[in-house]
Amino acid sequence: MSDTNRDALYELYALGLLEEPELSEIETEIRSGSPESQRLLRQAMANNALLSTLAPVAEPPPRLRRRILAAAGVEEKTGWTWLGAWGLATAALLAGFVYFGTETTRLRKDTVGVREELAVTQTELRRSQDTLAFLRDPGTTILKSGTAEERQPIARVFVNPGQGVLLMANNLPRLEPGKVFEMWLVPKTGGPIPAGTFAADGSGSALHRSTAGFDPAATAAVALSVEPEGGSPAPTTTPFLITGI
């Protein structure tokens, strides 16, 4: 492998683009901890970070700064005089020094964890709101496939020309290790188009959304098949659920 190729492989790795068999090769080199692999990885990470400067400028709202500082337990500066600040600090020290030393440390750690969890929860809430907005959109249509018989796979497919396809499935079969479900958009002409892979929960239920462009006039059906982990470019097993558009 030439040096240029090695640079490229580490850059592809840093971007999350490297595929087998080179992925395993580079991961083995990185795990070995050799100075050269560490140097190449750091250089790739540095170039990766530099790509962020290609983003168009977007101004964050001023409230975001306050929000982040408050979430981290860091208050914004105020216009207090030094005397006021000194008095408050002294009072706080006197009141808290004996009683709350150890307890405060413990609580601070707990609070940091809770704040981080809150940030993650807010992100999850945003995702749920996105899904709800999709379902509420007047352009979204519901389609069904499968039978209502107990334990038979059943799917509800919501399609929206502007926002893609949302699949809600139940009674999905339990999969062997290394297998996933893959959704397909079946055009009226041509082969099925991959629309993402997903797994079901323990009860066989799954929620999966594809935001790829969706043209109802050119699409005949939405189908589900079982595929190897990572998905397939074309179905390798017979689709077991087909929802006509």
Partner: peptide, 12 residues
Amino acid sequence: AAAEDLTQETFL
């Protein structure tokens, strides 16, 4: 809105 949430998550 999502960008604000994720920026907060980043700095925390």
